[in-house]
């Protein structure tokens, strides 16, 4: 795996994280919908599409997918998916630096485990 591909996977991670945040913010508006039959599901989707953050999320998907397909053309799927877990490490550092979140020991341990895992899979 070249450095370029690694870099692209990181870009993919950044945009899919942004996407998750958009969707999580939107989903918080949708917790009162029941989903027990098909009609309610359609109503749920209809209301989800009225939330601006959902569309911002779609925009992030467009970028992250484009990058992802270039990655997939170059390396094996099982490797790509594992290296993609680097996004958890990125989120931690970003929230530590920009959001001043506390660095709990389990986070440090988790980060080390993920880095070891990515190294073992991608080497």
């Amino acid at each position: 795996m070249t450095l370029m591909i690694f870099f692209l996977i990181i870009i993919h991670g950044v945009f899919s994280t942004a996407e998750q945040i958009c969707f999580k913010k939107s989903a918080d508006h949708l917790e009162n919908y029941k989903l027990s039959n098909f009609g309610e599901l359609i109503w749920f989707i209809f209301n989800a599409l009225k939330i601006p953050a959902v569309w911002l999320g779609f925009g992030c998907i467009a970028v992250s997918w484009t990058v992802w397909f270039v990655v997939l053309a170059n390396i094996e799927l099982s490797v790509a998916v594992c290296v993609d877990s680097m996004q958890f490490v990125l989120i931690l550092f970003a929230s530590y630096i920009f959001l001043k979140e506390r660095m709990h020991w389990t986070r440090v341990a988790g980060t080390i485990l993920i880095l070891c895992g990515v190294y073992l899979v991608a080497r």
Binding site: S78, T106, G110, L113, I114, L115, G117, V118
Partner: peptide, 16 residues
Amino acid sequence: TRWLGILCIIAGVTLI
């Protein structure tokens, strides 16, 4: 080695 890596990643994600 890859399976071991996958296990590490899952453990890491769970911990975080």
